[in-house]
């Protein structure tokens, strides 16, 4: 059987809000040692989301054997919306069951809610993501990244991200004109405002803003976002929830035909 309790249930609500617009149906994997995981592609197979909540990130975690739980994410989101932000959330499933149960407990235990979501059989392709050294690693405030993506999407459909010693430049072009936003590394002690750029070699890649904007739905999970780039490789946009887990998005670059 599988049973996992998150005292801060709001994290699970935010995690779901971060993936439900990108992915319709997905298999969650509960693993005895690793924790609660999901890997899924969007319907166009252009992007991939990989999320993991570590087993020891839960207040209580029990998983007797690996368990795959196929869920419709919109329906899961409907149920989690019924939990208050202050509630603890417990997920439970039997090894051979066809439902997953969500229990929401208010902080004073004066309200307990039980919801059961029907599981589905989902054929999903699992991709192996190699451990790669990336040419560039950028750390910046997640709200700043969200702002840049949404601003540029009002001008154009794609963003060219070029990283050099000068900093990182986000550029777009549209019918009404052009836009460029350049960020430079700073020496902020305040971690929330820190911008750091680790540069192995200069990189210039173009991505669809629609997907990057969808990734920024994870902004409430973390004050900082980590962006990794290498020539000719998908961008990685990662939000880390300290001591709990992470959500990483991968997006294939646009290429010149």
């Amino acid at each position: 059987m599988f049973e996992a309790r998150l005292t801060e249930g709001a994290i699970l609500k935010k995690v779901l809000d971060s993936v439900k617009d990108l992915v319709t149906d997905a298999n969650f994997e509960a693993d005895p040692t690793e924790g609660f995981k999901l890997q899924a592609m969007d319907s166009s197979h252009v992007s991939l989301v990989s999320l993991k909540l570590h087993a020891d990130g839960f207040a209580h975690y029990r998983c007797d054997r690996p368990l795959t739980m196929g869920m419709n994410l919109a329906n899961m989101a409907k149920m989690l919306k019924c939990a208050s932000n202050e509630d603890a959330i417990t997920m439970k499933a039997d090894d051979a069951g066809d439902v997953v149960a969500f229990m929401f407990e208010s902080p004073g235990q004066e309200k307990i809610s039980d919801f059961e979501l029907k599981l589905m059989d989902i054929d999903s392709e699992h991709l192996g993501i190699p451990d790669t050294e990336y040419a560039v690693t950028i750390r910046m405030p997640s709200a700043e990244f969200k702002r840049i993506c949404s601003d540029l999407a009002t001008i154009g459909d794609t963003v060219a991200i070029s990283v050099s010693k000068e900093g990182v430049k986000f550029s777009t072009t549209g019918d009404i004109g052009d836009a460029n936003v350049t960020l430079r590394q700073n020496s902020e002690d305040d971690k929330e405002k820190m911008i750091s750029i680790e540069l192995g070699e200069p990189v210039n890649l173009t991505f669809a803003l629609r997907y990057l904007n969808s990734f920024t739905k994870a902004t409430p999970l973390s004050d900082q976002v980590v962006i990794r780039l290498s020539p000719q490789l998908p961008i990685v946009v990662q939000y880390v929830v300290v001591d709990v887990g992470y959500i990483s998005y991968y997006l294939a670059p646009k290429i010149e035909d």
């Binding site: 991709l127 993501i129 669809a208 290429i255 035909d257």
Partner: peptide
């Protein structure tokens, strides 16, 4: 013109 590649063209199926 620019084209969009799929993510599965970068990462192998396991």
């Amino acid at each position: 013109a620019t084209g969009q590649r799929t993510i599965s063209s970068f990462f192998a199926s396991t």
